[in-house]
Amino acid sequence: MRIAAIILTLLVCLPLHYAWKAARARSPWPRRFLGAVGRIAGMKVEVRGTPLPSHVLYAANHLSWLDIMLIAGASGAAFVSRDDVERWPVIGWLAGLNDTVFVDRSDRRAVHGQAQTLRGALARGQPVALFPEGTTDGGTSILPFRASLFESLFPPLPGIRVQPVAIDYGAAATDIAWVGKESAGANVRRVLSRHGTVPVILDFRPPLDPAAAPDRKALAQAARSEILSVLHPSEAAADRL
């Protein structure tokens, strides 16, 4: 039933999206579709804090493919994703509709060009989100943030901020997390087969100014500390010692 509802929602949103694009207007329909998918999947979102509307790079912890739906629905952000997702059937096409920035993390020679692509999107005012852990394998723990993913912010662009986002699935986090060797299809089936709703908190933390950080490593650590302060306060306190 949930899969049918998602397909029906897509069929409604897709022609409206192309109509907006034909009129050369910024389309709200990817955001509305992704937010609807999160609700159809049973996620009941509470937003805390205020998402910056533009010129912002959201940095969030990463547990599930649902993270994309929830952040996009709350903020309208495009995403930074590994390049192989672009080749996934249907998913890669849908990601492209939402202006996803695809990066090849295995090719060091391509990193600079990809950083410039992301830098250009931020300079145009497009809100962009990334998951600096680079994987969901940490589960409910928060892995170190990859400083290389913040390269696009150095040298700092005027007016650009980094806003950490703590995603809290509460008691359902362990069950929802996509870890280990579970396939994408198996995880989607398992999550969509859950009964009832899951309360989820999206906590948009105070923005960070990249110009105030000495380098990208310090910026990555500061963003991670903000998220730890919400989800794992004792670990955040230990990091500050």
Rank of each mutant, 00 (worst) to 15 (best):
G159R: 11
H112D: 13
E151P: 04
L94Y: 06
V101L: 14
W88L: 08
I142E: 00
L94A: 07
G159E: 14
T174H: 13
L149S: 08
T140I: 13
D175Q: 13
R146H: 15
T140S: 13
G138L: 04
P158N: 15
P164Q: 09
V128E: 04
V80Q: 00
S75M: 03
L153H: 01
A78R: 02
I160E: 09
A95R: 05
A129K: 02
G170Y: 08
R105T: 02
A166R: 12
L153P: 01
G92E: 11
D175A: 12
L122C: 12
R82A: 05
P155V: 15
G134F: 05
A166F: 13
V103D: 01
L118F: 06
G139D: 05
P164H: 11
D83L: 04
G170H: 07
S152A: 15
G92H: 10
F102E: 04
D137V: 13
F145P: 00
F79W: 01
L94N: 05
P164E: 11
S152W: 05
G113T: 05
S106H: 02
E86S: 14
A78E: 01
D83V: 10
D168G: 12
S81Q: 03
D83W: 03
V128I: 14
T174K: 15
A95M: 12
F131Y: 06
A115I: 09
E133C: 05
L94M: 11
Q126D: 10
A121S: 09
D107G: 00
Q126V: 12
Q114W: 09
G76D: 03
L153T: 03
R161T: 15
A115Y: 04
R109K: 09
G96W: 07
A77Y: 02
D168W: 07
A95Q: 06
L157Q: 15
D84A: 07
P144F: 08
G113V: 04
A129E: 03
L153V: 05
R124I: 15
S81P: 02
V90R: 05
L149R: 02
R108C: 01
P132Q: 05
R124H: 10
G125S: 07
T135K: 00
L157A: 12
A115L: 07
A78D: 01
I160D: 10
D168I: 13
I91T: 08
L157F: 08
Q116R: 13
S106R: 03
S152E: 08
F145V: 11
F145L: 12
L97Y: 04
R119G: 13
L122M: 12
L157D: 08
I91S: 03
I142R: 00
P144C: 07
V162Q: 14
